[in-house]
Design a protein around this nucleic acid. Structure first.
Lengths: 152, 152
DNA sequence: CAAAATTATATTGTGCACAATTTATATCAG
DNA sequence: CTGATATAAATTGTGCACAATATAATTTTG
């Protein structure tokens, strides 16, 4: 047995930004999970739908895989299989671009568009689930987006 | 083709607390990853080491699997295989408790204790990696822990 | 004390995350 | 026009996360 270690507060769990962010993120995702299950979506799949629904508000829901990766800050190794599962589920379509055969364009199916109706109330329901006041959510959101803009 | 959708700002990606938290968490983990690779640790493995190192500052680094799950807010399906990999790597030991055969007690090996030396400077290096001032880190940390205490 | 309920961990199966590599297409330099 | 370079996705492999279930030991109850 080695001696007791000299305290190093910077290594204590409750002094870690990293763990706090990780725990908060998982906790929020957990609140969404049962709500999303009703729509047959996983959490990352929901994020893809958010992006495509938002794009469609401008009459165009098509998007390159690479754009999706950029917006969600995920890589193709995550996104490609994710989109394939969503395609099998009938929510999105995937096709090669005509102008550039390297590019794959993703779009919503009718079913994918319809699903938005059931998602409209979801963000608010998630806050309820967490017993988290809307003001608190807005303020934490602002703080985290500030951080992302500066250090992503 | 269906019509353009009526805008629903609550479904826009940049209005989601959930996505902001998820992106921040992954971004911070990414900063740690190359530093941890030098120590042969993954990020969740590092968190386990933090907990055990901290416990050892009080002369006792043994901990039940269930305690580890509680502290890290993870379930056994995540932690059990994680600990097995760490055991194979020679960082921790796992043994059944004598007093209660259901319980598995985890402890640090000598190698696991030694590894702390190389981790001492890691939190600061991660902030450097992110170009994130210490003050900013402290303040974000405080904010996230506040949230966890209230809504975990 | 024996059956029932509880507790602690492990197992199984699905779906991310992401590094590293591969495949295919497009662009550029000479 | 052709070889070199760059770009876009897909593939491969490892390690989480977590729901659901299983296994096994302990405690509680009648």
């Amino acid at each position: 047995m080695t001696d007791t270690l000299r305290p190093a507060p910077q290594l204590h769990l409750d002094n870690q930004v990293c763990f706090a962010a990780y725990a908060v993120s998982r906790r929020i995702t957990q609140a969404y999970q049962p709500l999303l299950a009703k729509l047959g979506l996983t959490y990352p799949q929901y994020l893809v739908m958010l992006v495509l629904w938002q794009k469609r508000e401008q009459s165009d829901d098509s998007m390159r895989v690479g754009e999706l990766c950029d917006v969600l800050m995920l890589d193709t190794g995550t996104v490609t299989p994710l989109l394939k599962r969503m395609e099998s589920a009938g929510l999105v379509s995937r096709r090669r671009s005509d102008s550039d055969e390297r590019v794959v364009v993703v779009g919503l199916t009718d079913e994918g568009i319809q699903l938005r109706e059931q998602a409209i109330s979801l963000p608010l329901e998630a806050l309820c689930q967490l017993q988290m006041p809307v003001g608190e959510a807005l303020s934490l959101k602002a703080r985290l987006w500030d951080w992302l803009r500066k250090w992503k």
